[in-house]
Amino acid sequence: MIELRGVSKRFGPTYDAAARVTRGIAARFGRPQKSETVHAVDNVSLTVARGEVVGLVGESGCGKSTLGRMVAGIMPPSSGEILFKGRNIATLPPDAAKDAKLKVQMIFQDPYASLNPRLRVADIVGEAPRIHGMIPPGQFDTYLDEQLRRAGLDPAFKRRYPHQFSGGQRQRIGIARALAVQPEFLVCDEAVAALDVSIQAQILNLFMDLRRDLNLTYLFISHDLGVVEHLSDRVLIMYLGRIVESGATEDIFGRANHPYTQALLAEVPRIDARKRHFTAIKGEIPSPIAPPSGCHFHPRCPHAMPRCSEEAPVSREIAPGHHSACHLNDRR
């Protein structure tokens, strides 16, 4: 349904005319200023099939939110192609591109920042369907009530403002807003991370009900391994802008191959391991401005070899549907 081919996203500082002139002068006098480019997402390819729930896991700052935003069409990729139902979104004519964009919707992490504080709930949820003329004028109110009810909100509250709701209810408003344009694909960017655990469960159940009722496909971005294991059919592990391992949920959680995945999983707090002392993965996540050479994980990897710092490992299939990018797999 969604396919990414070699997608990268680079963020660099933008220089205005004055900055360009001074940089030019500095370079002229033998002091070239280095341009700091962040490779937030580095040559990522992935596919998500219809009806699938794909979990995307990684540490903070590894580029998973950027990847999600590119999939949702909020940011264009710096290079690479994003295909929706086999067609490259970037080259579609405007109308078709708009339709494709509406079919992919995003649920945001922060339910406080993601709702416009100056609009009433009815406008937040109803604006896009009205603008895009998706609903015959006479049926608008019924349609709106139906969207709110489906997200678990009482339509009686539709004249209220976002600040009058709790975090969980706000997230439901965000979900109703996304559902109102009849999407087929939802990108959930840490959609439950800001909520209380009891509310998290409600929202996760809502996602699963919607999946069944509306035949939705999900890209579920999270750093919460428990949530991802519970929800996903397939899991992608991301480290510093690259996908290091991907496979079915059982394969990832049962037979993790990449040292990074193994390290992540070893540190999940579990009841049977509560006496254990947790050892964090050693070192900080490196700066994406100057990522380590070769395999990005080698400075923190317990199995690092000389080759790891020289050559970036390519992703290879180590079992049916289970891919991993690690030099250790070459020895077998």
Binding site: G73, K98, K101, M106, F108, A113, N116, P117, E127, I131
Partner: peptide, 17 residues
């Protein structure tokens, strides 16, 4: 930079709006 603007962009609203 706030997410509600990203949300509006995701809903393919016209830029004037």
């Amino acid at each position: 930079k706030r997410e509600y603007i990203e949300a509006a962009a995701c809903l393919a609203l016209p830029w004037r709006r």
